[in-house]
Computed example of a mutant assay.
Amino acid sequence: MKKPGLLLVLLLVTAAGGWFSLPLLATFPELQLTTGTGNVSRGAYLARASGCIACHTDSKGAGAALAGGAPMETAFGTFYPPNLTRDVETGIGGWNLEQFATALRHGRSPSGKPYYPAFPYEFYTRLSDQDIADLWAAFQTVPPVAQDSPEHQLEFPFNLRRGVYLWQSLYFEAQRFTPQSDKDERYNRGKFLVESATHCAACHSPRNRLGALDDSALYSGGDVADADDGKIPPITATALTEAGWSEVDLGYALKTGVKADGDVFGGSMAEVVREGTAYLQQRDLNAIAYYLLNRSDRPAKPL
């Protein structure tokens, strides 16, 4: 074989080896939960706070609860939120608690395939064992719906799911939520809700070309245009204070969608309120507002 041909073969073999070795780049310790008993009411509340209902229910299309959401248009293509009902064939009826926890904690399916980060497991990884058990208990009460979700319609190379292993190795860290010891209970409750359950940074922070959060500019505003409101606004403490937000006004707006000046949220934020934060207790909404208005605007550790 001539040298150019041999070199080409070696390059192809090396590339193939690298491609099939990608799963080894992002490995996680074996997941072991310390609780298996969940609280249905608490889980249903957390599901609302976490956006599960909003994302996985096609409300505009009068779809059944958690049977699959409306298409999500992104810079990478269109994602279709899957069926989370107890249907065995098209939903999660064949899963167990550990598999459910692995999806939330590690971004992996029961077969070991990585989920695209359009599913915000980079935030849900902070949920406690009890949080996950509660969510699982709540999902077990949802009637099964036999409804397949369409395949994601993504541009090359993002349609190659194996590449998500590389994304996870670069940008994703499995971790638990840790309260700040020098802060009070209200601050830490708000911190948990903002940084984990409600995952505010997912929309209100810029991302790089591979869809990873810009850790140096968390909460400084999203770089994706919102259909109704233009760019997603910053929600740093400085930006909120300069815009005239108070804790009371922000807590009220998250409950009702109505701002202090009488205007209302539009675009994606209107859906967040309608399907999520409107169901939260006022003390939790106030905790979110308190945390956002009092957190440091300095670059933080990666979420």
Rank of each mutant, 00 (worst) to 15 (best):
F28N: 09
T141K: 01
L135Y: 09
T27L: 07
T238A: 03
A197D: 10
L293M: 04
A300W: 11
T238M: 02
K231D: 15
L22R: 02
N188F: 06
D263T: 15
P82Y: 07
E275F: 15
P71L: 12
L240Q: 01
L250R: 05
F192A: 10
T277H: 02
G276K: 08
Q281P: 08
F172I: 09
G211D: 02
P157V: 10
C200H: 00
A227R: 15
V40T: 08
L31Y: 06
S111T: 15
S111I: 11
G91E: 10
E151V: 13
F139M: 00
A270C: 00
P206S: 03
I92L: 04
S216G: 04
V248W: 05
D223W: 13
V273M: 00
S109W: 12
L31C: 09
R295H: 03
G17R: 12
S181H: 11
L25K: 01
P144C: 05
G251F: 07
R209G: 14
L240W: 06
L170K: 06
D215Y: 14
G91D: 08
D58K: 10
T35L: 00
L193M: 10
E89C: 07
S41Y: 11
D261Y: 06
G107A: 05
N159T: 08
D297C: 04
L10A: 11
L11Q: 11
N294K: 06
D284C: 08
A287E: 00
G230H: 03
P234R: 01
A133E: 00
A70N: 14
T34A: 08
P179G: 04
F156E: 15
A65M: 10
G221Y: 08
G69M: 01
A118F: 09
P114S: 07
Y290G: 13
I288H: 02
T78I: 05
D226G: 02
D215I: 12
P4C: 12
D229A: 10
V164G: 03
E30G: 15
T85N: 08
A16E: 11
L25R: 05
A75P: 15
P143S: 02
G211A: 01
R161E: 03
V264I: 14
R126A: 07
T198R: 07
